[in-house]
Design a protein around this nucleic acid. Sequence first.
DNA 1: GCCGTTTTCGGCCCGACTGTTTTCAGTCG
Length: 577
Amino acid sequence: MTNVQVAEVFDLVADILEFQGANPFRVRAYRNAARTVRDLSEPVAAIAADSERKLTDIEGIGDDLAEKIATLVETGKLPMLEKLQGEVPESVLALMRIEGVGPKKAAALHKELGVATLDELRKACQAGKVRELKGFGEKTEQAILHGIDAAKSIEVRILWADADAIAQPLCNYLRQCKAVKRLELAGSYRRARETIGDLDVLVVSPHADEVMDHLARLDDVQEVIARGGTKMSVKLQGGLQVDLRVVEAQAFGAALQYFTGSKEHNVVLRGMAKDRGLKINEYGVFRVRGKKEEYLAGAEEKDIYATLDLPLFPPELREARREFQWADEGDLPKLIELDDIRGDLHMHTNQTDGKATLKEMVEAARKCGLRYIAITDHSRRVSMARGLDPKRLRAQWRAIDRLRDELDDGMIVLKGIECDILEKGGMDLPDDVLAEADWVLASVHYGQKQPREQITERILQAIENPHVSAIAHPTGRLINRRPAYEVDLEAVFAAAKKHGKLLELNANPLRLDLNDVHCAAAKSHGIPIVINTDAHSTDQLGVMRYGVLQARRGGLTKKDVANTRTWAAMKTLLKGG
DNA sequence: GCCGTTTTCGGCCCGACTGTTTTCAGTCG
């Protein structure tokens, strides 16, 4: 059983327990465990199988959960979950996914009205039965009716890049309001998560009403969901929710810290504050003496952390994974920045499915400040993209040779290929051709539904091929569209380490694989990551920044990313230097 | 259910908003 599967079991247990009204802290223990296991950089199955190690050494895993994990990885089942599933039909859990309906209301609906599905709930609302329940009313009934359709459509988190395209104009618009003195985006956008559920906008203003009125007047606002004295939520035309929060200047840092999250990071932080007799909320850090509270800090984010002798964590690290441990050890990594990138080793031209010519790509790369690039068009297996056979590939390389003679500023153009790993195993181009390349990416494009063992074996073979430099987009996922193929990444990491190969972090905002957790795992194995754009047009060279953000979330430094080096240093690295 | 410890059980982050109440519970982030 994979970590993700174990995590899903624990999440489901938490859902059911919550519905049953179990101790909220017990529910939280399961949710924490789900998250911890999901974020773990190695399989829990490996830890469970290792007699030298204990599952209980994992933070948040005690004797009970360790036992359950062991059962899960051994048998693939959890008796406790099966028992719970017998008590609560799965369709009932869907009730809790309605906005405004939590475990208490869902339980009341189920118990009092016998409602077990969303359709039954709709009928109950239409019959006016819901409003008669204690704690419910007419408005709640309407809100539920309104929320049922939304609950039925799967929650869609939009790509960070798409959120960015909405967020920037929105901020510009809000800044036009004279009452806005300071403005910052917080939330998962600021933490640069690969997808964003909503936008959190934080504003300093002496006139909250003016700011809220200003936002309400925006054409793109479809609906005002809620509005109070300091807080307002609106839904934009595309469905994205924006939460606006107005605070005073002396609370700005505290609010920014608070609304940037993550929730888990904040829980740890507040716990630490409490241990010191302090209290942290969105208004500041306070010293608590009996009933009196003394304001210590709050205007700037760094002051919040400083009161706990903590460094200003980069937002990308605030996930309560390793950051507090790093801080404790004085070993917080200095994260990679976009300017550190020197080369881009994955891009296409119009010889296959790219839009631009070789020359145009080189020119665009130069404008991006890159010092070296690899042209890596598809190999022949990718017929849809008119993939290159040896003859056309060598012709492209001759064109690169001619272009090199024209380049006078030290820009290096490498002869590369994105060579397919065939369904039956083996590379799409013969070794003698690959041997002539400066840089070979190996990719899985076909046979993505094969069983785990088969796909893993194909990739391991590619890693063992002496001409292969790196594995491109190693999991093949397309965010919100296609799941990752089944692959034993631990085995891939081990092989890459053994054979001195690199792994790609594909910067395309739809791919972004390896993901943050995988990047952290690769780093712990000592495997260099190469961040590439996979550009199919000159514009797409700009996606590099998304890849860098993902790398930062994985805790990668300049040193951990291979293409921050010169090409000469990269070559040494590839030779196992 | 975990954790820490004062080793056996109490505490576990904190506040805004809504709708239902008439002082607060539920939900959300």
